[in-house]
């Protein structure tokens, strides 16, 4: 059983626990959990990129593209979550595939910023499109699940389960992929690209594959958030600050483990929620302050807390 390691077991246990928890959770907690899963998935894509040494400040592009694709399909009568999320994921993936030809040539801060530039173009297009509600965005009704049409709280319960299944599959898939030869190549690209090429691998191809993957999961996250909130708007879907939040989550989580991105996303949502609740006038201060504290004192992200715990135990 070479595919089953402790991370897979851990993720599977978390999956089963959460499936049961879905039916007992307080509604607000489930909603935060749902958002954490969706944003965590986007961060997972960024994590994969980060392992090759690349960081994108523009993944709101794919997030927004996935969200708007799903939302626009509801306008012409599609409401099935499977189809909407599939379409949102795929469309973002195709976009990433196309832009990837250009972007894979760039590294470091240039890569980060070119992504941001493209995301701003999408933002501008949405703002200018009055048919799509411009900055107000537009709403989409509750989704159906292969004919099952839940109402009220059941929508969120079903959506949570739906998201959980897919994020579980994707996360385990990413974890296993990382262990393959091509997957291990990412660290090598990060360390020294030219040497990778001398070994006979194309660094650009490695990057392109990862870029498309990150686009796919960002589109997935966007489509899920669109369904969960029932509304798309450019400021929460495609603005550069949204991209910043994804990088925030990635750094919060650290590079250590694929599961960590979801904890990072959860911690992010909780910081924001409580800052809003207890300090409504200075929530940005608290958010920024926590980020600074993590950068300064937890350079490897929250995951390093777990690692420390393990070390002290061993």
């Amino acid at each position: 059983m070479r595919y089953v390691d402790k991370t897979v077991i851990g993720l599977s246990i978390a999956f089963v626990v959460l499936v049961f928890a879905d039916f007992f959770m307080a509604e607000w907690m489930r909603f935060i959990g749902l958002q954490s899963l969706a944003r965590g998935a986007v961060a997972l894509g960024l994590l994969v990129l980060w392992r090759t040494g690349l960081v994108s400040f523009g993944h709101a592009l794919y997030f927004g593209f996935g969200a708007y694709t799903a939302a626009m399909l509801t306008l012409i009568g599609f409401h099935d979550a499977f189809f909407l999320v599939f379409a949102g994921t795929l469309s973002a993936g195709v976009l990433a595939f196309l832009l990837g030809f250009l972007l894979r040539r760039y590294r470091a801060i240039f890569f980060a910023l070119l992504n941001m530039a493209f995301s701003m173009i999408l933002y501008g297009v949405i703002v200018k499109t009055e048919e799509l509600g411009s900055t107000d965005g537009f709403s989409l009704g509750p989704p159906t699940f292969l004919g099952y049409a839940p109402e009220g709280e059941a929508v969120q319960t079903a959506l949570f389960l739906f998201t959980l299944v897919f994020t579980y599959i994707v996360t385990v898939g990413v974890h296993l992929y990382m262990k393959t030869t091509l997957g291990s190549m990412s660290m090598a690209v990060r360390e020294n690209e030219i040497r990778v090429e001398y070994l006979g691998y194309s660094a650009e191809k490695v990057i392109h594959v990862k870029y498309v993957f990150s686009g796919l999961v960002a589109g997935f996250g966007g489509a899920i958030i669109a369904l969960a909130i029932g509304q798309v708007d450019p400021d929460s879907m495609a603005n550069w600050t949204v991209s910043g939040e994804f990088v925030f989550i990635t750094i919060l989580s650290g590079i250590g483990n694929v599961g960590a991105t979801y904890i990072g996303a959860l911690v992010f949502e909780l910081i924001r929620t409580y800052a809003f609740e207890y300090a409504p006038q200075v929530w940005q201060f608290i958010l920024g302050g926590s980020l600074l504290a993590i950068i300064m004192f937890l350079p490897d992200g929250i995951w390093s807390l777990f690692s420390r715990f393990r070390k002290s135990e061993g």
Binding site: I109, G244, F248, Q284, F285, L287, G288, L291, L292, I295
Partner: peptide
């Protein structure tokens, strides 16, 4: 570093 300046901006 970019993210640190972003955080500082929020603060």
């Amino acid at each position: 570093i970019v993210l640190a300046t972003f955080a500082m901006f929020l603060v």
